[in-house]
Design a protein around this nucleic acid. Structure first.
Length: 213
DNA sequence: ACATTAAGTGATT
DNA sequence: AATCACTTAATGT
């Protein structure tokens, strides 16, 4: 655990902070598909990702969901800061995209470290700002890109965070994430395949035009 | 062999 | 781009 912490967070964290994280943090494993937090959940912890990928989704009143962004190792969930400090009710759903390892830290300790450690404060503010940029990107994508572009971006993003060009997913799942219908996804994927950008198989999509990680 | 689930397609709005 | 109404293909039992 110490090694993993060092690898992804500790570059900027001082040893005393690492010790505290190890002492106070709860190491938790999530299996692929498992829910970390759901909309409306009471959130009283802040997660730090050691390994794996999480998908962050939002949902409207009708229960239609839309994928916002992915979290990878070294990331934390900026939304949980807000959730924690304000309503304590999650506005988002976070689901494990792969088997993952996370350190959960209670809000009390989180607050404490914010005051106590400069490195921690910087890390949190930095994550916050990265997340804000991602949000803006997500909004741009939704507002200005057509479905075919959104689809390709989705595939690229996913391949990127997973560091894997072979994606195990279904057209239906993509449709849920992009909040469209499966038929539309199937047709657009077919187009992309004809353009030589991807290869299609049942439950599998290979992204061919990735400019390497 | 049969049922189930994923994916493909034409037509319509 | 969404929906309907199929059809076809892949996979599990």
């Amino acid at each position: 655990m110490r090694e993993k912490l060092k690898d992804f967070f500790a570059l900027q964290f001082e040893d005393a902070l690492i010790d505290e994280i190890i002492e106070a943090g709860e190491l938790k494993f999530y299996r692929s598909g498992e829910l970390m937090m759901d909309i409306g959940d009471q959130v009283d912890f802040v997660p730090f990702l050691l390994r794996g990928v999480f998908k962050v989704l939002s949902e409207d009143k009708n229960g239609d969901e839309i994928a916002m962004y992915f979290l990878e190792r070294g990331d934390t969930c900026a939304c949980s800061f807000i959730n924690s400090l304000e309503s304590k009710k999650s506005k988002i759903r976070t689901v494990a995209e792969t088997d993952s390892e996370v350190i959960l830290v209670s809000l009390e300790r989180f607050d404490e470290w914010m005051v106590k450690y400069k490195s921690f404060r910087h890390y949190v503010i930095e994550s916050y700002s990265i997340r804000l940029r991602e949000m803006i990107e997500a909004i741009d994508t939704l507002a200005f890109m057509k479905m075919d572009e959104r689809l390709l971006k989705y595939l690229h993003d996913k391949a990127q965070v997973l560091r894997e060009t072979m994606l195990n997913t279904t057209h239906q799942e993509i449709a849920y994430d992009l909040n469209t219908s499966r038929v539309v996804v199937s047709r657009l994927l077919k187009q992309l395949e004809n353009q030589g950008k991807i290869a299609l198989n049942r439950n599998r999509i290979e992204v061919l035009d990735i400019d390497r990680f």
